[in-house]
Design a protein around this nucleic acid. Structure first.
Lengths: 337, 337
DNA sequence: CGTTAAGATGACAGCGTTGTCAAACGGCGT
DNA sequence: ACGCCGTTTGACAACGCTGTCATCTTAACG
């Protein structure tokens, strides 16, 4: 069992004929190192297979090299995408990605965050809905001057990195799609109203209807909460309130699945009798049968970029550009006639 | 902005009137500290709100305090449960839980693991299926003497912590349930054959049939791969091969969902025309309509215990008891007539 | 060429903890 | 009271890196 000799910065310095400080500079992308030496050091380090010791770095620099994602979203697929995007960006930069579920107390995540920060050090944080809209949380973060990024926030913050899609426009375009396929009796199944995104998607829904000059009474709003169950319930509701509806826009895929299953149970054919579109392009949408037409947002990329920008912010100790809009795409599948 | 003074071990030592080494001993549960001093130090530390600095600990002790879970399982709910169980155990002990998805190369996860270990230090690892059965991976781990735990391994290892349920017995009992409800025309939808668990569940299925003296020809095996799509396909297959079947046991919930959706599409009522049971008690099972009767294994608890035992192993530098069997439970819902 | 200032490099003291080993303590048998 | 030995405590040097500040180069300019 050959115990690896565990290289230190000193070994590299010796091998490259410089001092440890120069090696340190190279590995921190610090300025004032001749390009030639930089290459030399990197070459030697690569050949020997050297990796800086994280703990020593943390201890000496008083940074944690940790980017933490705080969330409270039961959608594990969404979380996985975010985590994967973070992980990619972090490992490129020698940082660590961590995910932490926060539990609200009296509607705010403030206390949970504080509890966390007592125990752990983070260099930067990423917040996703609904935490990205918790003003008490944001106040605490700003008080501590911790760089942070908001994914899909309801309100953009000047002093943060904001990564988002145009939710309203996305809602508008997928509704337009439904209308273009000939539907003029429509329903929107909402998510939780506490999620700004749901409200904005709905705004897009109504805008599309107005622009298409469809009478408002031909469209109905059904309350949901992003869960599959609420999709079942929404369908039942629909049958009572507006059985003539043929096109449904659910604010997320889970509810779309619920709606479709409920429809099948009631002997309706999808998409022949009822067209349903979802939102998020989650595995649900891909896996369902019929596969669900859905609006895809590049969550993984969004998390990747936020993390990159966050790390730049940590290094530069200053926030650069703060708003990054991503474009969306309608993934057309079979749930729409 | 009151910058927290950042307590060090020295502050505690001073406040308690001992040296830092004694404080260190207390925080490491080291032997040879008078109980009275131990209490004193702990009291002072609690009052002042002291937390040992992780990086310094890592640096000085050459341990990472990281327990890593290596997986390659698309079921994010399963992964979340494991992670949560690990996180609980870790935070109790001042350790860190990390999850890493490994990608196989030529059927083995060995290279992916090696790539990971070059970059990161771990004190212990947890492997879940299918990696828990990759002999090349296990060989590498043992070569390095890293404590490790296997969740639901196909073959138990003497030199590892094994945490598992009796898969065969579980398969047997849920099939018994189906039989007890009057079904004598049965089908089993398998998962990936590379997962030992699927094979064992199937063995239980056939055992139940044999014991109940149901003719073998009244039972059929349909190949699946744990995905919802394969559940759709399995149903189609079933209609061709054995349309008289009334009771289906799917090796996981996703396939159960797929089967039910396909059945609904084909005008069959669940559970009136067809009974379906799943396995894992995943959110799918809870959320589906009809909600699916499923076999629950305490994944969270299993991960929690593995992590605890792993940390004990790290501290003691020796493996104690190595086998921990967990019991399962049939969660009865509405998918079975 | 000498001067100067910016740029490149180095020496060295921490960072907060644990490991090692030596010293002090305390209980027991005589 | 003395010596012995196991238990408890302490002093101090690591651990591998970065921050600070001093020193040495270099290139540009007069």
């Amino acid at each position: 069992m050959t115990t690896k000799p565990k290289l230190t910065i000193e070994d590299i310095a010796k091998a490259a004929g410089v001092t440890i400080k120069t090696v340190s500079r190279v590995f921190n992308n610090a300025p004032n190192v001749r390009q030639q030496k930089r290459d030399l050091v990197l070459g030697v380090a690569r050949d020997l297979g050297y990796r800086p010791n994280i703990s020593a770095r943390q201890l000496a620099s008083k940074r944690s090299f940790v980017i933490s994602h705080f969330h409270d979203n039961p959608n594990t697929d969404y979380l996985s995408e975010i985590y994967e995007g973070m992980r990619r960006a972090c490992s490129e930069q020698g940082f660590y990605a961590v995910a932490e579920k926060l539990a609200p107390q009296k509607g705010s995540y403030r206390q949970a965050l504080l509890d966390y920060l007592v125990r752990f050090e983070v260099d930067g944080m990423i917040l996703s809905p609904p935490i990205s809209d918790d003003v008490a949380v944001i106040r605490e973060i700003e008080k501590r001057n911790i760089p942070y990024a908001l994914i899909s926030p309801g309100k953009k913050k000047k002093s943060a990195i904001n990564v988002f899609i145009d939710e309203k426009n996305a809602g508008r375009s997928i509704t337009d799609y439904l209308i273009a396929r000939g539907h003029d009796q429509l329903a929107f199944i909402s998510g939780l109203d506490s999620h700004a995104a749901s409200r904005q998607r709905e705004a897009g829904f109504w805008e599309a209807i107005e622009v298409a000059q469809i009478p408002k009474k031909n469209a109905v709003r059904l309350a949901g909460d992003f869960s599959m169950q609420s999709g079942f319930a929404a369908f039942d509701n629909l049958m009572k309130k507006a059985p003539h509806v043929t096109g449904i826009f659910a604010a997320n895929d889970e509810m779309a699945v619920g709606t479709i299953v409920a429809a099948l149970r009631n002997g309706k054919k999808v998409p022949q009798d009822l067209s349903v579109v979802g939102f998020d392009d989650s595995p649900f949408a891909r896996a369902m049968w019929p596969a669900i037409t859905s609006l895809a947002q590049p969550v993984n990329e969004m998390a990747h970029l936020s993390t990159q920008k966050l790390i730049e912010w940590v290094h530069a100790e200053a926030l650069g550009q703060s708003r990054f809009e991503f474009s969306t795409e309608i993934i057309i599948r079979e749930s729409c006639s």
